[in-house]
Design a protein around this nucleic acid. Structure first.
Lengths: 224, 224
DNA sequence: GATAGTTTCATACAACTGTTTGAATTGCAA
DNA sequence: TTGCAATTCAAACAGTTGTATGAAACTATC
């Protein structure tokens, strides 16, 4: 209890440095200098560098997952145990996008850290992400309730594509800004969420009805 | 000219090791051991470790871009200078997906290397990827011809989402397999391309017609 | 076959990494 | 105040990293 100051100073300094410069070139010595604590304090309080990184990521990650499940629960209660598909998807991608994008994505350390964690894939973070599957299954279950009859495979792909658009927008937000010469407004988080959800809903309900012939007539044309 | 053997032995060994174990924990000493050449040979032939990685990535990357542009050209010629939107998207995501996925994605070194390069984001590779914007503009131009009238912002988002689904499928192919318990067939590349293209086309043509109100009625509901 | 240029090689370098150690200091309870 | 545990600290450790060096081996040209 007494040395919480050191512990949290390390956590704050590490998150800030990792957010700014990436995991690749931030050393423990950089962190302890920023936090004004002794080098050995990291191993004393966290055991190892990797465990420090893991704790940073787990904290933010759990918060996001909690938010997701809260929104899902709210949506299901509102719908009498059966949330509409767009609300489910909104609960899935909303918290992540709000957490990482938005006008203060340059200002919020947490946001920049999560973006960094999404771009660079360092072992301790990868380990944690691999446990995310169980969490996602809850959304698959909700989607199954929202769209009975729909082939599971389509649900998996729908969820996968929703996460794809969400994560890729976070990862490549700078490149999209550059490509579009600023025309795509990455500060309009609500608009982005709307877009991602709308496309995901179309992916789940639109054209591709059969599991075996996912693309229909349209996509059968074209090169090769 | 005489010592091409050493040069290409290094390239082959490096690609194989990076593909298998990632950029993080493969050292120059690992590479020269695998290639049975002297340690100094890397710096002699490539200048530095980063330049070796860059050369590996540039080679594969240029090949993919060439394929993309070829398919785009073919599609435009077939359509008399105006390729249909789905063919354009197919030219965009097809080569990448075919290059990284497919039944032999465990067998092909090049495929595994490109997957690795897509997951880990190491400085020399990031630098190259940042130059990709010019290449993408050609596809934006083609899309503009295919869908006159359509707001540029929608085109940017459409292209962005197409790349999102394509890259995320490559990056997370193992997780999707795990989540879906094998029900999503990552070996069926053509089926995946069809799905990605179909959803991208819907994103570009479906519901979201106005630039200002991208999500339409449907997405306006839901949590928050 | 001597020469000049290229390529290979063993070795050293210099810097940096996360982690450990054991002593000093602090804070709190008796 | 004494005693004990928790915390901090400076220092060193042990290992690894990419790169540089200068001599040796090779290759092709004249």
């Amino acid at each position: 209890m007494s040395s919480d100051r050191t512990r949290s100073a390390i956590l704050a300094a590490a998150e800030r440095l990792y957010a700014d410069r990436g995991f690749g070139d931030v050393t423990l010595r950089d962190i302890v200098a920023e936090a004004s604590v002794n080098l050995a304090a990291v191993n004393y309080h966290f055991g190892s560098k990797d465990e420090l990184i893991a704790e940073l990521f787990v904290t933010r990650s759990l918060a996001t997952n909690r938010e997701r499940l809260n929104e899902l629960k709210t949506a299901e209660e509102t719908g009498g145990g059966r949330a509409p598909i767009d609300a489910i998807l909104r609960a899935l991608v909303g918290p992540t996008l709000r957490g990482c994008l938005g006008p203060d994505r340059e200002g919020s350390t947490a946001a920049r850290f999560m973006i960094r964690a999404s771009i660079e894939s360092v072992p301790p973070i990868r380990r944690i992400k691999n446990r995310e599957v169980d969490h996602l299954r809850k959304f698959i279950a909700a989607m199954r309730r929202a769209m009975p009859g729909r082939d599971d495979v389509d649900l998996y792909w729908g969820l996968h594509f929703a996460l794809a658009m969400s994560h890729h927008t976070i990862r490549e937000n700078e490149r999209l800004t550059k490509l579009s010469e600023g025309k795509c407004d990455l500060d309009d988080v609500q608009g982005i969420i709307d877009r991602v959800v709308a496309v995901s809903v179309m992916a789940l309900t639109g054209g591709a009805t059969q599991a075996r012939k996912p693309a229909g007539r349209l996509a059968a044309r074209g090169a090769r």
